[in-house]
Amino acid sequence: MAIKVGVIGYGYWGPNLARNFSQIDSTELYYVSDLDSSKTDQVKKIYPNVKTSADYKDILNDPDVDAIVIAVPVAKHFEIAKEGLLHGKNVLIEKPMTASVKEAEELVELAKSKNKVLMVDHTFEYELAIDRVKEIIESGELGDIFYFRADWLNLGLLQPDVNVIWDLATHIVSIISYVSKMEPVSLSANASAFIRGEIPEVANIHLKYPKGITAYIMVSWLEPRKTRSITIAGSKKMLVYDLTNEEEKIKIYDKGVDLAGNIDNVRELKVNYRYGDIYSPNVKKVEPLSSMCSHFADCIADKKEPRSSGLSGLNVVRILEASQKSLDNGGKEVILKDD
């Protein structure tokens, strides 16, 4: 029997989630709620058999609903997710999971006590190209990782309730955590607000990981060109992931710096710059959002822990909250754990 899904919020991301759950064999798009009647009118036109309501509590109180999908502003994530779990629903939350670590921790514990699936929509963790990047790192082809550099830039969408870090950096943080299996030990952040004065539209985050590995992240809502790229520099090779390049999302560069001579004497060192081949591995094209939605359904059916679990969402929120703390303290370094 198909898992009956209720989508709460039909604004920017909700329609994409609803579309995917309506297309997956193992799920049935059963209910959609939104405060805006024009949104629910759209739902009725596209999905005439789907129930609609202006009040999300109608979804929670419907005994036929197996799972809820939350696609509303971040400030409401915790409240609705908690209510959903208390009503015995499995819960999928749009990123970021919550607005604070405290809220995320409570949801993780509640889901555990209720034996329900709690999952976060970290969409890019379900991108086949990101899976391939993870495989390449684990194979050792890049050698020892030196650093990550990520640019997630575009014009808009300016969010009313969160700054650019909470919006765009969420993607990068979840990707780096997923492909590297590492969590940062400290970070520092700085940001600027040019348009509205109080909510930064441009930000930089510097994360420090174990073994001296670092990550440099830039996010912006004020860029003329859409950029979605991550560079991974290794001791053997370098990799560039470019989401906007549909044909060659991954490029591996046999480039680097090799040293020869007496390493104890800088003046006697010989520096050789390596310029080798560049190649792009073939990656099958599959919509990551579809894979994510299918995974959610599989986790409910098989009672298994999701890839982007509540704990994964908590770890990302912990980094976002620490970034906010750094911003509030003039870019001061925030310690997350001992190296």
Rank of each mutant, 00 (worst) to 15 (best):
V72C: 08
G88P: 14
K303S: 07
I335E: 10
F146K: 10
D34G: 02
R228H: 14
E106C: 11
G11L: 07
K332A: 15
R318K: 14
H171L: 05
R132W: 08
V317L: 13
L158P: 06
E79P: 07
Y209A: 03
E135L: 04
K82E: 13
V164R: 05
D131S: 13
N272C: 13
Y273M: 11
N245P: 13
K134G: 07
G156A: 13
P281W: 09
S37D: 09
P288R: 04
W221M: 00
D121P: 11
K4F: 09
E109S: 10
T231D: 15
I176E: 03
T40C: 13
V185N: 07
A104T: 00
R225H: 15
K4G: 04
L128F: 11
V7K: 06
K251W: 03
I205C: 08
N20F: 14
N49T: 09
V117C: 02
I300L: 11
M182A: 05
V74G: 07
E109T: 03
A67M: 12
Q159T: 13
S53E: 08
Y12P: 02
D58T: 01
D151F: 13
P160M: 07
R196L: 02
C293I: 04
K211G: 03
A75M: 09
I172K: 00
E83R: 05
I24H: 11
S113M: 06
I205W: 05
M238A: 14
D41P: 10
